[in-house]
Amino acid sequence: RAAQGRTYGNLGNSHYLLGNFQDAVLAHEQRLLIAKEFGDRAAERRAYCNLGNAYIFLGQFEAAAEHYKRTLQLARQLKDRAVEAQACYSLGNTYTLLQDYERAIDSHLKHLIIAQDLKDRIGEGRACWSLGNAYTALGNHEQAMSFAEKHLEISKEIGDRS
């Protein structure tokens, strides 16, 4: 049964990389079921994240957000800060796709704080870029400018010309 769980996970990832997102969802749902049977929260966390990603490419953004929220809860329970940051970033982008900019800002700010704690300058730069865009969408140009300046500063520092 444990091997079945791992195999469903691998199968889901193969379907995903081939662009078969519906088949990826079916496989990762099986992986999730088996992870729950075993109380394997790390595997459960991975399955939720993989499901969230597949739902993005199926255009089902509400479903993606629900799965990323579970990813975030489990990342916190597992005390994995890098994964927590990644889940916040995914959630922020998903809320942006849903045009829910207040929630997007909330998630991107959480990502920003963790990126700063972890001294992850690339993550920090991406959070600033995302925040600048979300504030622009809300018409808050002063905040947008502030984050755009921060994004520029970090991009120069890390040599990201694009």
């Binding site: 990832n13 595997a43 993989n50 990603n53 993005i56 982008n93 865009n133 622009t136």
Partner: peptide, 27 residues
């Protein structure tokens, strides 16, 4: 204007989706 705002909005998200397309949580 709304279209332009939407286009601005999408650029950071598009970059994220490009990365996401090749990203999987490996067993």
């Amino acid at each position: 204007k709304c279209f332009r705002m939407h286009a601005i909005q999408v650029d950071s998200v598009q970059r994220w989706m490009e990365d996401l397309r090749h990203m999987t949580e490996v067993e």
